[in-house]
Design a protein around this nucleic acid. Structure first.
Length: 275
DNA sequence: AAGAAGTCCTGGGCGC
DNA sequence: TGCGCCCAGGACTTCT
């Protein structure tokens, strides 16, 4: 499940491979990958074109085109973008220097589309996502104010891309642990100090994960096929039944709406802020 | 209008 | 060994 650190690692890895060279061939072997545009038009738009940049917005990657507009991709759960010779792949883009960019997706949830010059403004703003966690817009005060006017559970709030972009199940769980906040706490019952701790924890965990080139649990690999290293630094995610690295309590799992949350009952008590 | 619920997708793990 | 069932969770649509 690539989240911000994984997608950013992929973006950085792509920069040296897919820019400043013509696209000479496009092989699309599963048309269902392409959304909102006819597959033929997608292929035709890429052939002979060039990627000018690779831009990340939340968990999306955008590839602005020389002819205008951009290819936009979302890896969802199991999508991969890898560079180099290989087998298979739903979409293979070949460049003039022989480089191959392959789009693979075991579970077929990932999507790729093309947006025109009128939609593409240079940064993916058309996706209407919440602020980037490392932007100046994302301040502790802003987060506290947003939390204050929501009655949802804080875990659900954190993974809502319209509020903050880039957090998924792994890092929302890890941020809540670091902030000492129970995942089922109602947003508007978080104290200001807790909101501040949560804000800091979000940035801290994403920054550390990025420096470890992401978390590899099942499918995520970078553009070279190498795994990330942050799975060795997780405190709660997928550690149900194991002892907390900080206090020794047994990590628990709760489910809401088909999603698992992991937390330490010792470090993240429900307290008076819960319910 | 916020927010809950249902849906899609498929390989891997599990029980019998 | 093989079958059926559950599970993972992003983003989307539909509903109240």
């Amino acid at each position: 499940m690539p989240e911000l650190p994984e997608v950013e690692t992929i973006r950085r890895g792509l920069l040296g491979h897919v820019l400043e060279r013509d696209i000479v061939a496009v092989r699309l072997s599963r048309t269902g990958l392409i959304r909102d545009i006819a597959p033929k038009r997608f292929v035709a738009a890429l052939k002979g074109n060039r990627f000018l940049d690779v831009v990340r917005k939340g968990k999306y990657l955008a590839f602005p085109l020389r002819a205008g507009g951009a290819m936009v991709a979302h890896l969802r759960m199991t999508g991969r973008l890898v560079v180099g010779k290989g087998k298979g792949g739903d979409l293979v883009i070949t460049f003039s220097d022989g480089t191959e960019l392959r789009f693979e997706d075991r579970r077929r949830l990932a999507v790729v589309t093309l947006v025109g010059p009128t939609v593409w403004g240079g940064s993916g703003e058309f996706l209407s996502l919440g602020p980037e966690p490392f932007s100046s817009e994302f301040t502790a005060e802003w987060l506290a104010a947003r939390l204050n006017r929501s009655r949802r559970e804080v875990k659900t709030f954190l993974i809502d891309q319209k509020i903050i972009s880039g957090l998924g199940n792994i890092y929302s769980n890890e941020a809540l642990f670091r902030a000492g906040v129970h995942p089922q706490t109602r947003c508007d019952r978080l104290s200001l100090p807790k909101a501040r701790r949560l804000w800091a924890a979000v940035r801290e965990v994403l920054g550390e994960a990025l420096s470890h080139r992401g978390t590899s649990f099942s499918d995520y690999v970078d553009v070279n096929g190498d795994e990330g290293g942050f799975q060795r630094h997780l405190y709660v995610y997928r550690r149900e039944g194991e002892p907390c690295r900080r206090c020794g309590s047994t990590i628990r799992r709760v489910r809401h709406r088909g999603r698992s949350s992991f937390y330490c009952p010792g470090c993240q008590p429900r307290g008076r802020e819960g319910l």
